[in-house]
Design a protein around this nucleic acid. Structure first.
Lengths: 224, 224
DNA sequence: ATTGACAGAAACGTATACGATATGCAAGAC
DNA sequence: GTCTTGCATATCGTATACGTTTCTGTCAAT
């Protein structure tokens, strides 16, 4: 029984745990954009050496969550207004394609799953849960597309801009309009009207983009 | 004066050089899918220790070029037929969106650049240069979209399946048809017909997808 | 009082060292 | 003769150690 403090390589690489942990903190917003990520400190907190910490940080750099400054350490990547809008454009491309591929594959269970998400959160009209609902509803819509790589890319893009959108969702967008649009999209899917559903989804994300652009213009890029 | 064999941190991180080097080898195909990537050997070849090598390999894992097997080392990621086709679906999404955004921004210079690419390579009708031409032509078309992140994603997707497509381009696709389609797409762009250009591009990539699917069915997944 | 320089500290990037795990082969049991 | 068991080798994952670069605070000079 030498479990000690370190299960060691018994289960899985330490770097992966740290990677997951940091990524979650960044996505959740507890590590805000611009926050310094000091290797020594993270290593102490996780009771490991710097090497696996560096590995985790480097993977996050590829993901776009972390930025390295030559010999000056890493910080949480801070997206400019333009970059946020650019990622929304990418989401339009990916999510419309996913829905287009998904609609012909949808079965009854997919509709009920999506409806459940909508109703479950319909009372949760506060920004925390609403954002979660938004993600899950879209996931449910796209899942039948049968393209795991596409789904992963969509999730990546949503996670990258998640912290920024959450700052605005409560203020900029009323909660009525998005809900209505979600209903309309799901209706079109149930009727098998692929083109209509895609058009509605596209307009839906375009609206999000416009509202985000407006919020960014008003609030500027200050992080806090 | 202990510069020895190592310029050390004088210029830039060693891991980056190794990352670039390995990535290029994988994309070019000199490291074929399934090839083992032993840390010690790579470290010796680059005259560094294992640490920066590991960092490079981990970044490539995030990129999707490398696969780690628990305690059994890393290999060049081998894509299944399904994954290749899935990535082509993603390309359809991303490239159509890029072209849609690009057409309204195109100026005279963009057209001449694209035409130059087409004519420069029109004689290079052998698979090596043809593949390069294909990439460059598409790059030229999408560049005016003004979305660097989108362009980067497109490049990533093309690189991931590049080695596989090159195996088929010379056999499956005649070289006439793609060239003709390229001309048609560019024509539509010059006339400012965004929708038509996007439709043509979409059909163009769909055709590539179908031909790739056919080749995969015939040749199976054997790597060689 | 402001500015420049320098010493000390902090943090990074890499090398070396070591424990842990998987693979291959050889020897022995049934 | 075939299957099992144990050891040797190879390779990974992490800890520790060290040189280098960057930052910070103090002190002297104008």
């Amino acid at each position: 029984m030498k479990t000690e403090t370190h299960p060691l390589t018994a289960t899985k690489p330490m770097a992966d745990s740290i990677y997951d942990d940091l990524k979650e903190s960044i996505i959740a917003g507890s590590l805000p954009p611009g926050a310094p990520l000091r290797q020594d400190e993270i290593a102490r907190r996780h009771e490991v050496s710097k090497v696996p910490v560096r590995e985790a940080l480097l993977k996050l750099e590829v993901d776009g969550f972390v930025q390295f400054r030559k010999n000056r350490g890493a910080i949480v990547r801070k997206l400019s207004s333009a970059e946020i809008l650019h990622i929304l454009d990418i989401r339009i491309a990916l999510e419309c394609r996913a829905l287009e591929l998904a609609v012909p594959n949808m079965i009854e269970m997919d509709f009920t799953t999506a409806r459940n998400v909508l109703t479950t959160y319909s009372r949760e009209t506060h920004s925390e849960g609403w954002s979660e609902m938004n993600i899950r509803f879209h996931e449910a819509l796209y899942e039948p597309c049968g393209n795991p790589q596409l789904l992963q890319l969509i999730a990546d893009m949503q996670q990258r801009i998640g912290p920024y959108l959450r700052k605005f969702v409560s203020q900029a967008a009323g909660l009525e309009r998005p809900s209505l649009e979600h209903d309309q999209i799901l209706d079109a899917c149930e009727r098998g009207e692929t083109n209509e559903a895609v058009a509605l989804l596209r307009a839906h994300i375009e609206t999000t983009k416009k509202e985000t652009a407006a919020s960014l213009r008003r609030h500027g890029d200050h992080v806090s």
